[in-house]
Computed example of a mutant assay.
Amino acid sequence: MAQWLSGTVTANHHWHANLFSIKVQTPPFNFIAGQFVRLAIDTPDGRVQRAYSLVNSPGSSEAEFLVSTVADGLLSPLLQQLKMGDKLDVSQPASGFFILDEVPDGDNLWLISSGTGIGPYLSMLGTHTLWQRFKHIVLVHTVRTIADLAYRDYIQHWQHQYPNQLHYQPVVTREAMAGALDKRLPQLIQTGELQRSCKQALNERSQVMLCGNPQMITDTKDLLQSMGLKKNLRRDPGNITVEQYWK
Rank of each mutant, 00 (worst) to 15 (best):
T142F: 03
W131M: 05
L19Y: 09
T116Y: 09
S197V: 02
S123N: 06
L5D: 07
I118P: 15
S197M: 13
E193Q: 15
L229R: 01
F20W: 04
K183M: 08
L233R: 11
R152Y: 07
G73E: 01
P170W: 01
L5M: 10
P170N: 03
I240D: 00
T127W: 02
S68R: 12
T69F: 11
N164A: 15
T191G: 09
G228P: 06
Q80P: 13
M124Y: 02
L181W: 02
F20E: 02
P237Q: 00
K183S: 10
I41E: 01
M177H: 10
H136Y: 08
A176I: 13
F31V: 02
L66M: 10
G7H: 01
K183C: 06
D86L: 04
S91I: 03
L66G: 14
Q49V: 07
I99P: 09
L166C: 05
Q80I: 00
I217W: 01
A176V: 12
V55F: 06
A40Y: 06
G7V: 06
E64A: 04
K230D: 07
L100V: 12
T8P: 13
S53H: 10
I146E: 04
R234G: 14
S53L: 05
G212C: 04
A63I: 04
G34F: 02
L224T: 02
M216K: 12
T43P: 08
K83P: 11
L181Y: 05
R196M: 10
G85E: 10
M177S: 13
Q132C: 07
G34V: 03
N203V: 07
V48C: 05
I22F: 12
T145M: 13
D236S: 14
G59R: 01
G228M: 10
L202W: 01
D153C: 06
P27K: 05
P237D: 00
T173Q: 08
V140S: 03
Y151P: 14
Y52A: 00
S226D: 14
A178W: 06
F31Y: 14
V55S: 13
W15C: 06
R47S: 09
N108Q: 03
M1N: 09
G119T: 06
T145K: 11
S57V: 07
W158V: 12
A180L: 13
Y245V: 14
G46I: 06
D153A: 12
Y151F: 12
H157I: 11
A11N: 15
L19S: 08
C211D: 03
L210W: 03
F31R: 07
N232A: 06
A51L: 07
Q25S: 13
L82F: 06
Y245H: 11
N18I: 01
N30D: 15
H160W: 09
W246L: 08
L188T: 00
G126P: 14
C198G: 06
H136E: 14
A201C: 08
S6M: 07
Q169V: 02
T69Q: 15
K221G: 12
Q225K: 03
N56P: 15
A147N: 15
Q159H: 04
P214A: 00
A176K: 10
Q159A: 08
K135V: 12
L100A: 07
R133W: 08
D182A: 07
L233Q: 14
D72R: 13
W15L: 03
H141N: 09
P28I: 00
K23N: 10
N164S: 11
Q25W: 10
L202K: 06
E204N: 12
I240K: 00
K183Q: 15
K23E: 15
L74T: 08
V90F: 00
P93K: 10
W4P: 11
D219F: 00
K83L: 15
